[in-house]
Amino acid sequence: MTNINFVLLKSKDKSQNKCDIPIIMMHGWGQNLQSMRALGELLSNFYTVYILDLPGFGKSPKPETDWDTREYGVGVRQFCESKNIDKCFLIGHSFGGRVSVRLASMYPDLVSGVVLINSGGLKRELKFPKNIRAKAIGMLSKTVKAIDGMAGSKIFQYWFVPKFASLDYKNAGEMRTILVKSVNEDLTQDSQLIKCPTFILWGAKDTETPLESGKRFHELIKGSQFVALPGKDHFPFIDEGAHICAYYIAPFLQSIKLNQEEKAACV
């Protein structure tokens, strides 16, 4: 089993009928658990919170093979088992949102509620002329790789990557294959499979995962709630923004009507 580093913030709620379903928080690509810590601290007023370093980030070692987000889901599920968590709420940002969507669709019994914050997972619908450019870059990439393959050159590495690749790609290092796998995934079907209450929170000024993606998640996930935050970017929970996110997320989680079995898990 992959070792997952985490921080545990025990619930500060000492009341009689508190809910003992913990929150699992998962960060975005290139981030680590610190990025979600302020938000986690606020939510720990009501819930026990686990903030994870996803494998390959922060202090968690890289998975032994190049995982796709489905395998990340399996890894997090194993983490839950090791902590005796049989019900949980998920909060996923960006890449962590992809993993959350996978978990919720694969393990409906484990996941009682999902919060997606500027989540990845849906391919961008690019409009003219950006779609033409994207296709051209894709073809160029294949051509360059083919030339490198035949001629033994390194044009891809030394010319194509610096010129056309994303910052995440350039910084990915050993995680590059995982990054490529994840950005090529489309979670439309998984999203449609989510049955638990889902809250979609979106910084509306995001250029990495545009507002359009948030709206599509909202359409795909039946019964989901959607809130767009004007003026906020890809990290709406940064600094004091954590208070805005907690202000919207806490009431959503508290509104989730638990079934009998889940209620039994509440003290």
């Binding site: 809130v227 940064i238 600094d239 004091e240």
Partner: peptide, 10 residues
């Protein structure tokens, strides 16, 4: 500046 970041933008 802190306060502006915490104001509900909605």
């Amino acid at each position: 500046l802190q306060l502006i970041k915490a104001l509900d933008p909605i």
